[in-house]
Design a protein around this nucleic acid. Structure first.
Lengths: 337, 337
DNA sequence: CTGTTAGCGCATTCAG
DNA sequence: CTGAATGCGCTAACAG
């Protein structure tokens, strides 16, 4: 690859002039400017991003670490981040943590060591508290995405999980459902914990009997599946006043499998709703009532906060909560009262 | 952040010694070694990947560009690439092209400008031929993934699309199906073109009447949907000897929607099979017969070829074809003959 | 076994 | 309006 030196030689100018025409960083005579541009075209010169970043101590790139960019919700967040980053001329470096603390740590360090200007982080369920402390002490601009921690002094972006769950359950309760089974999942994940809390809020609001509600939480999805099957076997929460709510897509998959095995059909025997949902929800039979994250917008918002933080490292940190919409579909269609 | 100079100062040694203990690149007295290690721990020193890459002209990182890491098949390929890259101590930089030629080009350049050691590329349908020429002339180690071009002199990894389609159709034909509708999609995409060709092979092999076969190809999925609906309206290829085959996941989604609108049920009225498939295939009713790419293994293989290429830039290029398995499920369950 | 030194390619003072 | 010179943090000769 050609370097500035060769371009400068060919154009008969100094490398400093070349640098300035490339970056538009000072006035240069149209003639010399043209000579430089021609030389660039002739040599196929490209700026070396590494050398440039090293000299400027700034790379115009940001990193994002998510547990799995293949999960629909994260995929959309990544799309939003890409969109917003491109708009600001930032290159995006993406890494998966696979929901594993060690891989998460490696990914963060790999990104930091490459001198990204900032980091967007959707922490793994088992994420070590240390990692976030490191970020704080080194002062690397960081925004926490989707999985947010209220006690941490970071910029954060998430959906209004608690309120959405509350609204969902309130809606179902207002249509006569009195008995719920919430498959809450791994409540070490803040989003899932928030959804669980929203469920409790709603139960209280609607004055449902606590004894009629089942909440299944746990770290291992296989255990959760077992617990759910047992719950179904005990006859909870059927009887046509029951509803099952899955707090995430993997949990929904597990729940639907168990329901089908138990010979229960939706919404005839039991109502069903989920958060996040599947790639092609319209293809499911019945179509599933789903609380949808504004994932793309969350990604955009994260980049916005990050860019501001990079520009002004000392401003107070902000948390953005985005509204989730509830798509009511057939799986919770009101039974005849 | 601390630099080598500070570590060296604290340890009372030269920076060259620091470098050597970090990289284990020459013998150093256990005592001094310990002093250096202590200083590193005390300062929280981390190697600057940029400076190191610049000096070594090698970054120990590779880039991958796919149309959308959120698509299940690509997500799995990315997982495979990550796995194999981590195993070799390579950092992975991932970018989406969103099936857009311009964004693809930007992504490739962003990666190249950051001096990745090599590139894995699943080209967009509209990918400009130039881009690949640039890669060839600059000699950047590159492997083409999933979407391969037999006339190009690159290392390539793909599934045996043509043969898999041939086997699938042969199977269906042997169970009595005589009339097919292949939703082939955008045959500018090599994988889709190969599948189309495999279909033709099978029709010839089984001596099916050409006039009974429908192949719908096109660049725009909406147009394809319209064409498919019209085909169904004409009564093709129903009558319980018909089968619909979708050549990719988005095409399957479109096909299933149209079938359901037309009031046709599977497999009672019509058989259905697809390539790649959905995230949770077991949740579909009926379960769908699917030709599954060995996506993870394809990712692993791509990294293998790339690492070899980086090591030996002048070896002849290789193409790896991986076998696809056909998961037979209810959607093609044999009707009673 | 360890230290000194010359760049990698670039942005940026400081002089002219 | 332009050029010369310095150093970002690091590795790899080279010299002791």
């Amino acid at each position: 690859m050609a370097t500035m030196v060769q371009v400068a030689a060919m154009a008969g100018v100094s490398i400093s002039t070349v640098s300035h025409v490339i970056n538009g960083t000072r006035k240069v005579e149209p003639d010399t400017r043209k000579k430089v541009l021609d030389a660039i075209a002739a040599t196929g010169y490209r700026q070396d991003a590494l050398a440039r970043a090293m000299r400027r101590s700034r790379s115009d790139s940001i990193g994002i670490v998510v547990s799995d960019a293949g999960e629909p919700a994260f995929a959309d967040m990544v799309h939003g981040v890409e969109h917003a980053a491109a708009e600001r001329g930032l290159t995006l470096l993406l890494a998966n943590s696979s929901e594993d603390a060690e891989r998460e740590e490696r990914a963060i360090h790999a990104l930091l060591d490459r001198r990204v200007d900032g980091l967007i982080l959707a922490r793994a369920a088992t994420s070590r508290p240390d990692i976030v402390r490191v970020l704080a002490t080194t002062g690397s601009p960081t925004v926490l995405l989707d999985r947010v921690y209220p006690d941490l002094d970071f910029d954060q972006v998430a959906a209004d999980n608690r309120d959405s769950m509350r609204r969902l359950v309130a809606h179902l309760a207002s249509h006569g459902h009195r008995r719920f089974c919430l498959i809450a999942g791994d409540i070490r994940v803040p989003a899932l914990r928030e959804r669980r809390d929203g469920f409790r809020d709603a139960v209280r609001d609607a004055q449902l009997a606590d004894a009629d509600q089942v909440v299944i939480a746990g770290e291992d999805n296989d255990d959760i599946a077992v617990a759910f099957r047992e719950s179904l076997a005990r006859g909870e929460p059927a009887d046509r006043v029951g509803a099952v709510i899955a707090a995430s897509t993997p949990l929904a998959a597990l729940a639907l499998t168990a329901l089908s095995e138990a010979g229960l059909s939706t919404p005839k025997d039991i109502a069903f709703a989920t958060f996040d949902g599947f790639n092609y929800p319209e293809l499911f039979e019945p179509s599933l009532t789903t609380v949808v994250q504004p994932a793309f917008e969350m990604g955009v918002a994260a980049v916005g906060l990050l860019a501001d933080r990079i520009e002004d490292p000392d401003s107070p940190s902000r948390t953005v909560r985005l509204h989730q919409t509830i798509a009511l579909r057939k799986s919770t269609e009101a039974f005849v009262v």
